[in-house]
């Protein structure tokens, strides 16, 4: 079957098997390997991407279901050579170690800050609670997201560029 969708603002159209998972479509068909997968059962959140401005687990979504929708991946976070404040926050606050869960974490964080520009630590923890990081113990991820929130409060930026 043919699927057509916008990925990071680019229109893509491909012939695929109906059973193709969105994560495989993104990684293997489009070559966007910044999205990772970790568990098969939608428990780890490593595969999180946006579909229509909402984080979803792409290992448990069919590419066919995303057809006609807007998809955003980690590759779409940096705009015109400028990192998203969330990406910058993760660098500044050591919010990543191996970097495997990081793309999904950052996309969820971006969605949180778009809805709640001044989250509490507890709200951040709740927002990322469907995503597992095995390296950081989460405190530095919380700090990273707070860093981005603080930066955006000082310098409002255009977000959601996909």
């Amino acid at each position: 079957m043919e699927v057509t969708m916008s990925v990071n603002g680019d229109d893509v159209s491909q012939e695929i098997e109906p059973r193709t998972l969105l994560v495989h479509f993104i990684r293997d068909h489009l070559g966007l390997t910044g999205t990772h997968w970790g568990c098969d059962t939608s428990n780890c959140g490593t595969c999180v991407v946006w579909v229509d401005d909402e984080p979803v687990k792409s290992c448990t979504t069919l590419a066919a279901m995303a057809s006609g929708h807007d998809v955003r991946t980690v590759e779409g976070m940096e705009v015109d050579g400028v990192l998203d404040p969330v990406q910058e926050g993760f660098i500044q606050c050591h919010g990543l170690q191996c970097g495997f869960c990081t793309p999904g974490m950052m996309l969820t964080a971006r969605a949180l800050l778009d809805r709640n520009p001044d989250p509490t630590d507890g709200e951040i923890r709740e927002a990322i609670s469907g995503q597992i990081c095995r390296c950081t113990g989460y405190s530095t991820i919380v700090r990273s997201i707070q860093w981005a929130a603080a930066k955006e409060r000082e310098t409002p930026v255009e977000v959601g560029a996909s």
Partner: peptide, 9 residues
């Protein structure tokens, strides 16, 4: 129920 990302779908 589940987690926030799953609850989106």
């Amino acid at each position: 129920i589940a987690d926030p990302v799953v609850r989106n779908r």
